[in-house]
């Protein structure tokens, strides 16, 4: 069975989706990722979907699920690199990605994760409004 690799980097988990997913693969990613968050105690999850040519309601639900599940395990999720056409289609479809944060690219996503984690726990006075 194919799997999407999950990379660990410090307190973050990185996932790059490089192929168009069929449903089983997406469901596997969801459970694998939640397992990995628990096992590594990761504080942030970054999912790069720049190679995805479409995100339909199923994929949208998976992303939302990952976000909400990670959230209750105390990890923030950011989805990065969404294609413009995909964003326009999602809006038309009537789908919102409420469970996750979004950022333009991996770099901005990492910044956002760092800001979220820092502002929430370490030093509330620190000037880290982030880019949201």
């Amino acid at each position: 069975m194919d799997r999407i690799p999950i990379l660990r980097m410090g307190q973050y988990l990185l996932v790059t989706i490089q192929i168009d997913l069929y449903d089983r693969l997406a469901t596997n990613l969801e459970s694998d990722l939640v397992q990995a968050v628990s096992k590594t105690g990761a504080r942030g999850v970054l999912i790069d979907i720049s190679a995805l040519s479409i995100v339909d309601s199923f994929m949208g639900r998976i992303l939302n699920n990952i976000g909400s599940m990670s959230k209750i395990m105390d990890a923030e999720t950011v989805v990065v690199g969404m294609q413009p056409a995909v964003a326009i289609t999602l809006i038309e479809l009537g789908l919102e990605l409420k469970g996750v944060h979004t950022a333009l690219n991996v770099e901005k996503g990492m910044e956002l994760l760092a800001a979220k984690i820092n502002s929430a726990y370490e030093d509330p006075d620190e000037d880290e409004a982030g880019t949201e």
Binding site: A87, I88, L90, I91, E92, E96, T102, A103, L104
Partner: peptide, 13 residues
């Protein structure tokens, strides 16, 4: 509103 929502989905304000 749609345009704003799409922009936010991309991760911009």
């Amino acid at each position: 509103i749609k345009t704003v929502a799409a922009t936010r989905l991309m991760g911009a304000e």
